[in-house]
Design a protein around this nucleic acid. Sequence first.
RNA 1: GCUCGGGUGGCGGAACUGGCAGACGCGCCAGACUUAGGAUCUGGUUCCGUAAGGAGUAAGGGUUCGACUCCCUUCCCGAGCACCA
Length: 851
Amino acid sequence: MSSQRKQYPFPEFEPKWQQQWADTQAYRTPNPGEAGFDAAKPKYYVLDMFPYPSGEGLHVGHPEGYTATDILARWHRMRGYNVLHPMGWDAFGLPAEQYAVKTGQHPAVTTAKNVERFKKQLDRIGFSYDWSREVNTTDPDYVRWTQWIFLQIYNSWFNPATNRAEPISTYNGKDPDSVRLAYVAEMPVNWCQELGTVLANEEVVDGKSEVGGFPVERRPMRQWMLRITAFAERLLDGLDALDWPESIKLLQKNWIGRSEGAFVDFTREGSGEKFTVYTTRPDTLFGATYMVLAPEHPLVAQITAPEQRKAVDDYIKAVASKSERDRQDASKEKTGVFTAAYAINPVNDARIPVWIADYVLTGYGTGAIMAVPAHDDRDHAFAEKFSLPIIEVVRPPQPVEGCFTGEGTAVNSGILDGLPTAEAKNKITAWLAERGLGRATVQYKLRDWLFSRQRYWGEPFPVVWENGRHRAVEETELPVRLPELADFKPTGTAEPPLSKAADWVKYSPTATRELNTMPQWAGSCWYYLRYCDPKNAKRFIGEDAARYWLGDGKQKPGGVDLYVGGTEHAVLHLLYSRFWHMVLHDLGHLPTPEPFQRLVNQGIILGTDGQKMSKSRGNVVNPDEVIDEYGADAFRLYEMFMGPLEQMKPWSMKGVEGVYRFLARVWRLVMTENQEGEWQLSDAVAEIDPSPSQLRVLHATIKKVTSDLGTLSYNTAISQMMVCTNELTSAEKRPVSALRTLLVLLSPFAPHMAEELWSKLGAKFADFEGSAHGQTWPTHNESLLVENEVEVVLQINGKVRDKMVVAKDASREQLEAAARAHEKFAAQIGGKEVVKVVAVPGKLVNFVVKG
RNA sequence: GCUCGGGUGGCGGAACUGGCAGACGCGCCAGACUUAGGAUCUGGUUCCGUAAGGAGUAAGGGUUCGACUCCCUUCCCGAGCACCA
């Protein structure tokens, strides 16, 4: 099949143009201050989510977003923008390290090999990246600045008074280490013995490691944390001004998980210890019939009565051995143990039992709750199981079955009786505050970011330990390079692999290096900044470059103008990036408050079987094979023609053939085969004026393609170009001016063919100077679109009965008269009584008749 | 369970602000050219019906002169979150 003759000679001209673009650095974009920079032009920063260069190479899902952004980049260049369109590599990560463990090859070696392969594959597709800006997160020059940014975070704190990150020097407290945005804490983590590392929650699936499927257990370990929770409110508020899909904003909102409620202090009967609980329903306080502490709550050991000690200890042990997933399964039956302690409810002095149960989580609120079984599903289930009392304190507006958790009217609640829920909340919160028994508060589900990994292939922390305390290394020591290691294998203990590099570990006679490395997110948190100024040796991004490419942040949040990538990064990557960006902005290093103004998610491309592509299913489509067969332009065009960018859709080789045929028709508009089977300029191309209908289609195409590019509706833009091509194909003589315009429109989509035909036409006709992609984007002439006569629909009771042609500006009255004069249509109305006539000029006439 | 998306021909998908449902492409059918066609070109192609005509955008109801589009109910598919008090 591949030996079959191609319908147009893309195997020759596609590599030719790619070579020429590379040789002439056609897509190099100068920075402010550099030769060739035109300050008068507006900027457009269009960004792809950079790939992890895996050993598998590209599959057809990668280039979907890349093609979309490439078309936009090319389009904006033609519209007079300075376009920043870069690419790079997110090259740290577990797979490279595991491969290294298996083969003994250094991950840097395999990474370099994979990068080369990815780059070659991308170049075959004809993307207009400015490769002079390529970044690689594992490059020491890049790692230097990742570490530098970490130090900015380490050396700052969140000042609640200003609601901003500030240098740690502005903190007046005793222990700066307790407020740093990067801090060390003992945390329960996902430990995978087999992989010898902690894993992020999202790397754990069904209690097993996503990579390899090894068991994962919870164990407390000393870890580096980043204080992202301090920014919860700003991360939430900032979303409003971003042009992101509402669904993604919602995901982030849910992840941040803001809730309003109150802290309420209960006291232990007798000894008087304070149990502070968090509740979103302080109005139900009178219905609290017991309390529950998380098993890990610090007061548990202290309050447990001797007769219950064994049961409590056994329960705590059992909970600790459970995986996080087992514990958090909401559908399982409730478990818990009575501590034999009692607490006093501050509003009515009721004496209620204190239990421990694993349905109360230690990391949220205060790790303790008041249980209101009448109005909370979980408390209800627990109370039923352990036969605890249930007291109704909220009357539903309408009678309901089972546990009522909605809003209603307070009952059995003393001073609150008769109040609707919202008022009851306010009243009781104020009542508690007056007496020093509670206060209103806001809580977030968001947790601080676990930032350390026990891996080799990541950025070392620029931190050393001395006398049990951590401190930053000098900036002049950056980058802190990874030591050469012959053996990357896990140590089999919690000790990171870097511990094996004895010389490296020993920083000074009294100090040792931090042995953990940063997670893969670190490099991807700020790569979009480095692209702006990739060679800057003095700063992570130069001020002029930042101000130009990101904007001043005054009109809009600014940053990257368009960011395209998959939904898998909807929460973590995008949230982490926003967090780092905010800190750097607060500290005065960046002009804009947000990194990404507009975000678009491309949908997943499924295999030809409609299933998700995977090696095990054997349905992975490799772009190289498609390009061998149909060429890069057809590949690009099909990726965009499949359907809406954001939608999930299956791959179809027949579909590729369809756009391939379209491109072949475009080719034959200009070229024809001679007797010897060689392609030559067609005689049908002539310097004649386009016909009115050709002109109309051409300008309709300019209009549609332009507006569709604005909304990323590539599929309909392409279909309009097909319409235009079909119109020109059917003509005996093809006006060269129309072909010229079509090629300009086509050039962002199918750049090789546009360029090739442009140069072929240029050999004979004037007005083909330079290159197709160097042309100014055309504008349509609206007056050419309007026709003098339009077809309007004739309806009876909203049903189409006939059609007629009238002058385009016919009035309502004229339309009605014309309809009545329309013989066939008038006959259908017959003698029926016309109740009403609706006439919409240019569209239709509708007769509403009786009977 | 909760929260978002989404259900349109044989298939991928079009349809502006409520105004001719099915653009464009695939597939299929017929024809032309041809030694040949899995190349190309031309025409057709939602369904039922020979036709006139009728039905039709997951199902049912509503608003409207008019609904794929707006409202209500139900079903199905996809994604995310999942004991967050």
